[in-house]
Amino acid sequence: MSEVIRIEKLTKTYGKKRGVTELDLHVNEKEIYGFIGPNGAGKSTTIRSILGFLNYDSGRIEVFGKDSIKEHTGILREIGYMPSEALFYPAMKVSEVIKFAADVRGLDCRKEADMLCERLKLDTGKRIKELSLGNRKKVSIVCAMQHKPRLFIFDEPSSGLDPLMQNTFFTLIKEYVDAGATCFLSTHVLSEVSRYCDRAAVMREGRLIKEDSVENLITSSAKNIKITMNGKSEEYIYNGDINKLIRELAEKKLDNLYIEEPSLEDMFMHFYDGEKA
């Protein structure tokens, strides 16, 4: 399976502030890759470096085997990007924004754009300033998808979309991925990752702390332990030798014990709270 995005030792600082540090990751063709982390973890910095908005300090980014700096414009031709804020020119009509995006690409995307607008129930006659965040997101989706790119980059795509539209959006992604596209999406909605992504990376304080298939992230050796002792309950993720855990638990006088597979949410909290502690 060929790599669509390859990031090696990416480091970006903003003066004295950290952006990302020594980040290595790769995204394979035809996969939906989740990029997880709380605000300030370095997700947007990574995305903005891929897109050439930022000049990174060191490292290398390749998209479709092309250097992200030297072949910046060629790379953007293959990308459909949806920013988290979805802001456009307020006085323009939706149809004008969509046409403008197609015109800059030098493409006639009317057929695909019409299909997308219909499925997303987007009124193209309205002006941008009249739209809610959700509807602006829809415009952003159309602009990102109408030229049928080989790579989608979405920065927190589902925020502002109602559950029905979220479903339509992810169905569209699935369809494009089935047709050969690749999707890289940053989010802090873990249910989206567990439901739609093939692989995921967890970012913390500018560093990649875990990268694996979503299946492996959830069904790793880590267990969610819930114990009740002396009327008090305690819950934690255990990621060590299971025999040692049993020995330790045997020494305690437990009222109750649950050992469960952790959810992605539990794993995420474990990466953040557990490892920090």
């Binding site: 990007y81 920013p83 802001l87 456009f88 020119y89 307020p90 995006a101 800059v104």
Partner: peptide
Amino acid sequence: EAHTGEFLYSLPLSR
């Protein structure tokens, strides 16, 4: 300032 740069500069045209 209006955060439209994210849209404009993601289109395939060099800065």
